[in-house]
Simulated assay, not measured.
Amino acid sequence: MGAGPVSGGVLARMRRAVWPGANPLRRRTDWFEPIALLVILVAAVVVLISSFVVSQAVLRDHLARVNAEHIDRHPVSAKVLAEVPGESAVVRSVRVGWATPPDPPRSAVIEVPTGTPLADTVPIWVDPQDRPVPPPRTRSEATQAAGTAGAGVLLGSGLVLGGMFGAARWYVGKRRLAAWEADWARVGPRWRHHLP
């Protein structure tokens, strides 16, 4: 005697596990999980598209800034004039001077990491007005900012959707248990008459 044919395949079993179908014991709350699953799947697609759009917008914006900074800023070699006393353990301040002919010589106080050995000259970046500025950002920094923005949208949306789904499941489960208790309160006394 062999086993009878298996009714349906893996997909059919999965569909029955998710979709309540025509089960006579089905309650209205049993429709919540498949509908919520469908809503979560649609929301996940929307979140994926949104995170891609956000990351691309951030990347365009940062790349435009990177290009503008590379156009506006240029490196110069500045001569170290003196060390400026300071309290920080992370950076130290030094006065440097440079000249970009035909402009007159300039000087400014810049900060360098404490462990950096000071040579006679240090490279600095200046803007079109010949003022010291931070080095221009790189394309990799722009890409990293875009990736962080996209990941932030994904993570934040995932936490919100997961929290909403969990709270809704808790509420529906509570309602389901209350309905079962009410049904048992109605049916239980009738069953007690049939017990030996």
Rank of each mutant, 00 (worst) to 15 (best):
A64F: 06
E69C: 02
I71S: 11
R73M: 14
P75D: 11
S77T: 15
V80S: 02
E83P: 01
V84L: 03
V84N: 06
P85A: 09
G86C: 09
E87I: 12
E87A: 13
S88P: 05
S88N: 09
A89E: 12
V91N: 12
V91F: 10
V91K: 10
S93T: 05
V96T: 03
G97C: 00
W98D: 03
T100K: 12
T100W: 07
P101C: 05
P102F: 04
D103I: 04
P104C: 03
P104F: 04
I110H: 02
E111T: 08
V112A: 01
P113R: 09
T116A: 14
P117I: 15
L118G: 12
L118A: 14
L118I: 14
A119V: 13
T121N: 06
V122G: 03
P123S: 10
P123T: 06
P123N: 05
I124L: 10
W125T: 06
W125L: 05
V126F: 14
P128G: 15
D130K: 12
R131H: 12
R131F: 08
P132D: 09
P134G: 12
P136S: 10
R137S: 06
T138P: 01
T138A: 07
T138D: 06
R139H: 02
R139L: 00
S140Q: 11
E141N: 01
T143A: 01
A145N: 04
A146T: 00
G147Y: 04
A149Y: 03
A149I: 10
A151G: 15
L154D: 03
L155A: 07
G156I: 00
G156T: 04
S157H: 04
G158Q: 03
G158M: 10
L159G: 09
V160H: 05
L161P: 02
G163T: 01
G163Q: 01
M164H: 01
G166P: 00
A167M: 04
A168H: 07
R169D: 08
W170I: 08
Y171G: 08
G173V: 02
R175T: 06
R175F: 02
R176G: 03
L177K: 14
